[in-house]
Design a protein around this nucleic acid. Sequence first.
DNA 1: CTATAACTTGAAGTCGACTCCAAGTCAAGA
DNA 2: TCTTGACTTGGAGTCGACTTCAAGTTATAG
Lengths: 155, 155
Amino acid sequence: MMEERTFSIKQTATQTGITEDTIRYYEKIALLPRAERKDNGHRIYRQEDIDTIQLISCLKKTGMPLDEMRPFLSVSTDADPAEYPELVGLLKSHRENIVSQIASLQQVVDFIDMKLEKGKYRRDCSDETRDDASDHKVSTVQMNYFPLSTGKSGV
Amino acid sequence: MMEERTFSIKQTATQTGITEDTIRYYEKIALLPRAERKDNGHRIYRQEDIDTIQLISCLKKTGMPLDEMRPFLSVSTDADPAEYPELVGLLKSHRENIVSQIASLQQVVDFIDMKLEKGKYRRDCSDETRDDASDHKVSTVQMNYFPLSTGKSGV
DNA sequence: CTATAACTTGAAGTCGACTCCAAGTCAAGA
DNA sequence: TCTTGACTTGGAGTCGACTTCAAGTTATAG
């Protein structure tokens, strides 16, 4: 039985790339559970907590507001999401969001490539705002990587 | 010689999915050029302007702050970016940003898939924060879609 | 002639996500 | 003993991006 390693808030900040202030802020708004304290009141973090913070940082990159992360974090700490059926729905729906985000990003890449390759005409990015889905080539990313049937990805 | 069609701010808002208030705000902070006015002072928009607004909306989805968009908008309205060499650098560097954003998004998709497929263990997303690049499989998206040599994409 | 709708303006308010501050505690070193 | 450093707390301040507000103009319909 090996003792589990613990980290100070500073170490945690360094490892996750999230500042100490921000970590305390996440605790304040209860995005993170109240961290354990040492006798002197200092916070203690374990690998598990670092993982959670990294998940937050990851979800942030997908543009998810902090408030919406809570359910995902509970999936992350508790074991199996199948026990929380409405969570599965959330996961799937966020997955769809990300897929469409990737499509948006892809459009910007297309725009940039168009601009870089030649001083070409404009063919701007638009998706649901204008419904010219006809000449909007299905994102290759979406095609290649996402099975579209939300299930197993063929990595 | 056909007369160019023009749009009211309301029509423009509907077409772009950006509210009238926000369009005026973009003009106020000079993200958009001051729109032409009719005799009664009402703003007039052309297709060109709508394209620009849609580009803004698109760049927003990539998480770009409004302030950083200005150079991109000038590429969009003026013709050829090759005339503005430092702009080419900007375009390329933002392209790289987007590629890494897509990689981040992909990690979240992986996390979700992992959670959905089984009640599996955690293998969280992390990139530059922790340097375990060893078991961090190169994003399939990045591999498939992006030539990596910033040039022409094989669409 | 009046009221409704579609706009205009400048300024103030909101909201999310930090970020900073002041004052205090505690442990270890010169 | 005093200082330094790493932390604690609550609260205030900042910043980007809107969003709302109040007051005014103009065009059309009843």
